[in-house]
Design a protein around this nucleic acid. Sequence first.
DNA 1: AATCGATAGTTGCACCTACAAGCAATTGAT
DNA 2: ATCAATTGCTTGTAGGTGCAACTATCGATT
Lengths: 160, 160
Amino acid sequence: MTETRWLSDDERTAWVRFTAVLELLPAALDLQLVTDEDLTHFEYFTLAMLSEAPGRILRTSALAARTNASLPRLSRVISRLESAGFVARSLCSEDRRATNVSLTEAGWAKVVAAAPGHVEAVRRFVIDALTAEQIEQLSVISAAMLKRLDPDSRMLASEA
Amino acid sequence: MTETRWLSDDERTAWVRFTAVLELLPAALDLQLVTDEDLTHFEYFTLAMLSEAPGRILRTSALAARTNASLPRLSRVISRLESAGFVARSLCSEDRRATNVSLTEAGWAKVVAAAPGHVEAVRRFVIDALTAEQIEQLSVISAAMLKRLDPDSRMLASEA
DNA sequence: AATCGATAGTTGCACCTACAAGCAATTGAT
DNA sequence: ATCAATTGCTTGTAGGTGCAACTATCGATT
């Protein structure tokens, strides 16, 4: 094994701060959605991805790719959203193993209702805390990290 | 309610990318530690915080503050680390409600063994993906977000 | 010193997620 | 046409975390 390259003081400071953000920000966003809309961030994100899909319908595995969720996880989340009336499952005619998940009217209404509060939280904790220049920097920096974290950009791709 | 201020295109791009990082990075760091060291990132962080404390000992609530954990969560994590032999509980002489948690020799050895791999992962996914200038930008940006997320900087403070 | 409220920590219960096993449908090779 | 391997999704089981309830102790007041 080669010698460990420890972090410099500047690197360490940046990392400690960034780690704190990684810990606190998701919790803060979740809290807003759970208290205001009774949705976890992941549930909201799932509904949001569906709402942006053409026809507001997606196959389960396509939705899993967009939300970076495992199939088992997504399957249960869909079940919950289904019993809340926000999504509906239907069979896929092309491949009878597959299931399509579609956003119901109630689900669409839920996204529309929840979006402003969520965006407001994103502004409060992130966007409005930064200058336009810093937002651009964050964008570039995030892209650089994503190249390492997700080389195939499965997370961002709208499906080839 | 006032009119929603939606995100501009640039803001939205930055946010989508940053969200992906928020989702992928913790999972990537966890994966390295779990597979290589059989420790969750939170367990590692707990041991690391203890290892940096004077005398490698801390009261449970002080440790909870440093790790941003609820007492119930930390209590159970300590129980696990204790049965693994990495930490030990002892009674606090000054306040008999409190418990001190100390790092054992085995716990210290575990941190020492795990640190290089973890730092290497941090480098691989974050530090080495960025220029020195970008690391400085990330540091400043994180600080700005933390001011909103954690106004009292409980997370970073080494306890007043 | 007796008491009431706050604090330190643990535990019961419910929920969410991961991993692995399972079932059904599809694809590819013979 | 048939069988084996793969794919799409669901479910059984185990483990981690949050919230609320609980015990024990401390501190302040009377």
